[in-house]
């Protein structure tokens, strides 16, 4: 039988103390049921202090102007008509642990439409598809490490982790650093969402401050009169110790 929200919330509360000392979720996080059979039980082998400057994870794939087109960053212009929903701009910088901008690297996003439905065959949520919205975007960061997307605010959607499970509105982000070891896939959330407390995926980040780093800031200066609301969200990529990265390049 599917657990109730109360049962899941009690498990979330029991897991609340950070256990790993890192920002990232423990891969075993029982309130998120799908994690149970999909996490390694053996300890990971440390590779953050390798002396091998030839380790290929110290370099990484590169992307360029052939991999994107101008329109890829505007999710509202991929069809003939305007998508339904609240038009937004999402922008920010991609940085490494030392605060250095990650330049010219690929940022990819995907998201549900304003009604909370993905344009994915296996999304069976009864909310309507929007013929004018697919929900996929990509761009390259500029010289300051900046990315920028125009899209619509995604809706919350139900999922089957437990009875009455709803995901807070979010945009999925995929980021490349200058090294393969800096790879990150994550989700950006919107400030003040009432679903935060109930969501095992967000709450898998058990450290409050780290969890806040997944929430974008509304930025009125970014809002465009008569056009769109602005959100700002910076991303800091984890990865090998900075000295190692420098030696390796």
């Amino acid at each position: 039988m599917s657990p109730t929200q109360q049962e899941i919330s009690a498990e979330i509360a029991a897991q609340a103390a950070p256990t790993s000392g890192t920002a990232h979720p423990e891969r075993r996080y029982p309130p998120y049921r799908s994690s149970l059979l999909r996490h390694p039980r053996q300890p990971l082998v440390p590779a953050d202090d390798l002396k091998d400057p030839d380790a290929v994870e110290l370099s990484g794939p590169v992307f360029g102007v052939t991999d994107v087109t101008e329109l890829d960053a505007d999710l509202t212009r991929q069809h003939h008509g305007e998508p339904l929903g609240e038009r937004i701009t999402v922008t920010g910088r991609v940085l490494d642990r030392d605060g250095r901008p990650v330049r010219g690297q690929l940022v990819e996003i995907w998201q549900a439409n304003a009604s909370g439905r993905y344009a994915h065959q296996r999304d069976q949520h009864s909310a309507p598809l929007d013929p004018n919205f697919t929900g996929v975007g990509r761009c390259l960061t500029d010289d300051q490490g900046r990315y920028r997307f125009t899209t619509v605010k995604p809706g919350a959607y139900p999922w089957r982790n437990h009875t009455n499970a709803w995901r807070p509105a979010h945009i999925h982000f995929s980021l490349f650093g200058t090294a393969f070891a800096q790879r990150l896939v994550t989700q950006m959330y919107f400030p003040g969402d009432p679903l935060f407390a109930y969501d095992p995926i967000l709450r898998s980040v058990t450290d409050d401050a780290a969890r806040q780093r997944l929430v974008a800031a509304y930025d009125h200066e970014l809002s465009v009169p008569e056009w769109s609301l602005g959100y700002r969200w910076d991303v800091v990529l984890d990865g090998p110790a900075a000295t190692w990265t420098e030696e390796g390049r």
């Binding site: 995907w110 993905y118 994915h120 989700q187 995926i201 980040v205 910076d234 800091v236």
Partner: peptide
């Protein structure tokens, strides 16, 4: 700087990333 936490890729990346 403190890193941005990871989150799962989820079930619906299939029309975006491949």
């Amino acid at each position: 700087m403190l890193p941005t936490p990871s989150q799962t890729v989820g079930p619906f990346y299939g029309y975006a990333l491949p």
